[in-house]
Nucleic acid binder design. Structure first.
Lengths: 209, 209, 209, 209
DNA sequence: TCGTAACCGAGACGGTACGTCTGGTCTTTTT
DNA sequence: AAAAAGACCAGACGTACCGTCTCGGTTACGA
């Protein structure tokens, strides 16, 4: 879960025995817990690393030793919980899967503090190019991969034309959601989900129409 | 153009003759010019009001007197130039109008520093609830109103079903664009524009085809 | 009293009217009062600028704007009070003047917290070459000048040989005092003063006795 | 040479045979060498224990296991070399002995990096009461004992009155030197030595004058 | 020959303070 | 009363060290 571990993946199976005192799990857990707690209380922008360290009863250096920036820390504290709320649906139909996925997303950002955190993270990502890449690797890519399965399964079933670009479908469906989340110009509710799914099915659903 | 003027609209046509030295146009222009210049040089997040005032050879108070926050100032410096690059298209067809509008947006954010500024503004908007409302009033609403005309004209022409929700069409088309702009997970090019338009036309053109 | 003022002396009688908000006297007084208060409580080494600012209810920058280092600040807080306790004696005899001056010094460092502060300042001076120069200009030189008068008056009276180097007399008399103050290897009391004066008078009184 | 050894003296001749791995001489030597090297490069105040350990390729704990503070470590690294340069003079006359001793001291602090180290140690001693006691025991007392011999021999020879307090003579002679060393207000050269000796001989040398 | 106790280098631990920067406000003199 | 200038309080930034602790590993003694 630690940021630096995830970047280096598990590509060094036989380490040459690292020296020095190892990182403490308790410290790491305390930092992530404090971060998660603060993210429930206020927006990412209103949180300082100083505050996280104080809340976690941890030295500031112990935070900086593990995470290079507030954004990567928040990403770690946010990621697991968010992903857990986006189960890969498999209802047997494109309509069902897409509705389920979009609805899960909508409910998460609407009904939990994760909506605010997600907005804060996207904002943070815009101000830190390094974080942007991590964000794509650690959040955008995995979530999209899961959602892409929905479209690919539909293609395999013949529900949508094989000429369709799955990426565009994903960008349309979730892009609309993020658009409303960030601007707040319209509601993110079940009606929104239904309309989006309907339009996209009409567009792609040669066999489904 | 001044932020406070725009909020109060022009609803005080006959002021009771205000006392004291009036605001200096030169000061205002210097501040906006400095802001625009800095926005070309770096992201909004890397700009401080202190720096704007120094660059404009103006006191900090003269900035705060006019704009309550960095976001509103940046919005003012950004708005006019951005809108000027989004001409209301009228090609006679939904496909043509939508392609033109989306392409104008894509080219603006791709080929000018305004892409970065737009990202910075959206980020800023997430950390300042007051700015969020102004952002909707001053940017989201007018731009969407212009784009909505495209859909409404298409409806009037019978190109799309009157049951279609124009808002959803706009959110799908531009939401996808903003999604790629903010995450950077895929290209924002003419191919993107073409695919988006194709999918949306297929979706809405049921009655028209 | 302000550090930077004292360096530039009063050699700019007609300033060209400086711009901006001037330094606040209240702020300066609060900082010096907090420093003096802390110096009564503990040694200079145990005081941090952070603590001074907090105690003075002042921003850290307001301290750094005026004093470049903890040492210069402490010097300012210490100087006036110390000098006030070293009145220029004029008893009419070398023995009387020297005894009075040395006794005043001994009592100050023995009976007041200024002894500890003086030790702390001398320590601080060793670790900061810039402070060392200021220390000489602002403390060593003026105090020595006052004490040198004692020797010069004695010379004028014929009490000591004109061949005597007044500097050596001062270094012997007060050097011995500082030596005991810093090392603590022997008492700093009236007996010490008496013995020092006796030895020095015996040494210099060849022509007088 | 090790700090803790010196404090406990050799008063436990028959230890109960201590268990565990004994201290490594190589480690101790590496630490002292690194300290001495750093003291040649910069002042004691600019050296951190962290740096000593790194330079000595030694764990920080191995330093703290042997010395309780930076001051005691520096004292150990400094002491032997300094003492070696202060040979007990025995020229047969007070003038000769005093001149030799003071000159040796002046040359050491003037011509070697030990002058700066001595200043740094005296500064360190002011901020650490525990170190102050050690400083007296380990440095002030032995050096003074050696110098006191000079005065006592002169008394035995009848060069100075038996009523003279040898302590005062030492404080006058070396106090003046330390005064100039710490304040830097006047030169520490042979002329200084000569003048000091002349004054003190005149003061005490009833039989010598 | 085996614990076991204390050492070894390395480096993480919770802390404190550093000196700088920015935010938004306040106080000058000048226009 | 607005202008430019810049000081005001507040507090976060990321770094450097403090003195302690925890690793895996290495000696040397006593059982």
């Amino acid at each position: 879960m630690l940021w630096c571990n995830l970047v280096t993946d598990g590509d060094i199976p036989s380490g040459p025995a690292k020296k020095g005192r190892p990182f403490s799990d308790a410290t790491e857990r305390a930092i992530l817990a404090a971060t998660a707690q603060l993210l429930e209380e206020k927006g990412l922008a209103d949180i300082s690393i100083e505050e996280v360290a104080t809340r976690a009863r941890v030295g500031k250096a112990s935070v900086y030793r593990r995470w290079p920036s507030k954004g990567t820390l928040a990403l770690d504290a946010f990621e697991a919980e968010f992903i857990a709320r986006q189960p890969p649906p498999d209802t047997g139909s494109l309509r069902g899967d897409l509705t389920a996925a979009l609805r899960a997303w909508v409910r998460t950002v609407n009904d939990t503090p994760m909506g605010r955190t997600l907005r804060g993270l996207i904002a943070e990502v815009q101000r830190d190019p390094a974080l942007r890449e991590i964000w794509r690797e650690r959040f955008v890519t995995p979530v999209r991969a899961q959602h892409r399965l929905i479209v690919e399964r539909a293609m395999a079933r013949g529900e949508i034309s094989p000429a369709t670009d799955p990426e565009i479908i994903l960008d349309l469906a979730f892009g609309a959601g993020y658009h409303r989340l960030l601007n707040g110009h319209a509601a993110l509710d079940d009606a929104f989900v239904k309309k989006v799914v309907t339009v996209l099915l009409a567009a792609t659903g040669a066999s489904g129409g």
